[in-house]
Amino acid sequence: MTGSGGTGASEGELPRPGATPPPPPGFLAELAEAFRRHRPQGSLRWNFSDAFTRLEQHVRRPPAAGGEGPAAGDRPGRGPATVGRAVSGRLGRWVDGRAAAAARSAVDEALAEGRGATGATDAAVEAFRFLAARVEGLEDAGSRRLSPVEGMAWLVPSPALGGWAGPVARWVAGAHRSGEVVHGECGAGELAVALVASGLSVRGAEPRGAVAWEAAERGVDVHVGPVEGLLASTAPGSLGGLVLSGVVDRLDLAGLVALLETATGRLADGAPLVVVSTAPGAVGTGWDAVARDLVPGRPLHPETWALLLSRAGYVEVGPLEGPDEGPGAATYALKGRRPG
């Protein structure tokens, strides 16, 4: 830092807010990545527009030896959030297929008319540009459908785990064999800290940046963003355990099933899974008007989760004993384990 003027105090004399250590550099990188996931387009050398230009150039002059494909590390810049847009992704693949068919058709037609390779390419490029615009529109629509309100996690926050941290940590630690345990959404890291104290390697996912900051200050390794994004970037069969809370209260049924499918694919054989959910009966009294209006889904009953886990092949499925039991409880926890 450079600057001028005055008789400034030295860095060491600056008052500090208590003894809280700052988040580690890795968390600051996570914070920056959380913004980069909003970028809608690719890098300068790898995108629809550049591909069209290369296509046109190839027709007007022979390609150089070795081709002009994207350089290594210059792949599409869409981050996990964009890639994770399941709906738009499926639509994109469908449209890609239609685009390829349309382009082939345009080329065939142009060749049949005897306009030659240049005319054919012009027609193909025009078809691709049209379809690229359609894909963009579909992606935007899909994105709005999946995330219609900015900062939803703030408007409808995750329930505090309260007394569940101890029981969940004890059961996961007891069932754990090897591999990293993920908690999403980890909030300020209460459970993650308890899991780490049990000797486990833990990664949290928390979409609320300021809350993630608190977790990071407590030493939790936090992914700033939805847990779906973290799971999407995790190798299949590699997770040593997973705890889901918060996110399971907000997703609609299709979203929950997709999340469970992803989670199941990422968990290692024998790895434990715990769902901590708001009780459906507590929604009417415990959620404020904004939450009731904005949440696209509703928390499931424990019996429903038990059914979903069983059908997904989990074993030892059942309720986890905790501090908040009985018909009037605001939250419940359900456990299960991958076979093997």
């Binding site: 003027g5 005055g6 105090a9 860095e11």
Partner: peptide, 25 residues
Amino acid sequence: DPLTVAEAVHRVQHDEGWRAGLVAA
């Protein structure tokens, strides 16, 4: 990085002599 910028702003905010010097400069 966020911490560096935050520290710098904090110093500008906290150290009034330094702040006045910056304004004068």
